[in-house]
Design a protein around this nucleic acid. Structure first.
Lengths: 218, 218
DNA sequence: ATTAAAATTTAGACAAAACTAAAAATTGAT
DNA sequence: ATCAATTTTTAGTTTTGTCTAAATTTTAAT
């Protein structure tokens, strides 16, 4: 499997192509910052290899094998992210770029040892679940903060947007995974929220609230 | 710098092309398991980039910049080897292949953090010196065991051959870096040696002795 | 000095992965 | 149902790094 092939499988998975729903060539091209014609070429190649289904003009979705392969890349990516944060003191906004490279290292022993060193973490620094060695993968029960009813309490468990700018914003406002969050007030006009986070009060825009995942507690 | 370019620079350095001595196209091709014509093509390209000197039919040698770049790859390779052994319990015969991949990861921060995590090691698991961040590089004072005079004592500090078979042979005979070695007897006929290693006596062939480095003590 | 052998380069080709421009199929609005 | 807009594919090209086969240069032996 080439690096490019791995990146296609990973992207298609992230776009939802693991559930039998076909993904448009255009969507893949946009996500990967490439041209639709390049995606078509690669789609044919990956279909030949038995990693995805492709019908002209109908988009693609992954085969079972394709899903398995995609998950193994995602597993590596997320484990390396944890490694960078826990063992090398990277911040959560610095890890993505390096993990994009490390995820392509081919050594089963290496990633298993990293997994063990980290004591088999279940989530990456952004709160995304880490697939197991045999491709088990379950999303944690969670809601966007924007969907949480008034007065409901929860724990911050993940971010949807993982851009540097968003993560740095959260750092600046001392919002981190594990914090307790309660929605105190919702402003009708712009859907901004007044929240209690640990023991501080904070006003956040709807754009922030739609990018923070919360696990509600009772 | 592409992965292929990095491999060429590294190989040329290892063949001695860092001291103004030109290295033959053929030698590079053989070392890299490729064809001389491919080497010629790449030589032109690397010369254009200012990383080596190339004159038709005269071989190549590295520029100062080329040496610097080669050393940065070698630094990464050796630091990753130490990491694999010290932090992930790889054996010294398993590390090369994985380090060949890891050495191409592009992140200055990453390798500096790995360096710090390992507490700035000076030598890799095979006893080869690790260049510093600014390209300082000094070979330890050492001799091949085959060159050591009778009755001379020394410490085993490195291996010349890093093949799996040789390293596994050493493991089997409990020869490891750090062991004290004394040459008790040299057999004229085949240059084999009777040695004392720590507190055991051992008979080793000349082929073994010419692949073990020793630092003589007093 | 000649010449055969060895080393090296050139020329032309190929595969992977991308691109552009043009053609074809699909979608959506009327 | 038609047609314009959008999406997707096709055809042909490019770049990188490799290859083979043929040509050239160097080396070494006489």
């Amino acid at each position: 499997m080439t690096r490019s092939e791995e990146n296609y499988l990973k992207t298609i998975f992230h776009l939802g192509g693991h559930e039998g729903v076909p993904i448009a060539t255009n969507a893949i091209a946009e996500q990967m910052d490439t041209k639709p014609s390049s995606v078509t070429d690669m789609a044919k190649k990956l279909a030949d290899k038995g990693w995805l289904y492709y019908k002209r003009y109908q988009g693609v979705f992954l085969t079972d094998l394709g899903v398995k392969l995609a998950l193994s890349i995602i597993r590596k990516h997320r484990l390396w992210e944890v490694f960078l944060v826990k063992k090398l003191d990277f911040t959560w906004d610095e890890v993505h770029e390096v993990a994009e490279q490390l995820e392509h290292i081919k050594s089963e022993k290496l990633i298993d040892k990293i997994d063990a060193l980290l004591q088999f973490p279940k989530y990456d620094p952004h709160g995304d679940p880490i697939p197991t060695k045999d491709g088990q993968f379950q999303q944690r029960d969670r809601q966007l903060l924007s969907e949480v009813p008034l007065r409901q309490k929860g724990i911050c468990v993940g971010v949807k947007d993982t851009s540097t700018s968003f993560l740095k914003f959260l750092d600046k406002n001392h919002i981190a995974l594990g914090n307790t969050i309660e929605v105190l007030e919702r402003e009708e006009f712009d859907d901004s929220l007044r929240i209690k986070i640990d023991d501080r009060e904070l006003h956040i825009s709807n754009q922030i609230a739609t990018n923070l995942y919360v696990k509600t507690t009772t």
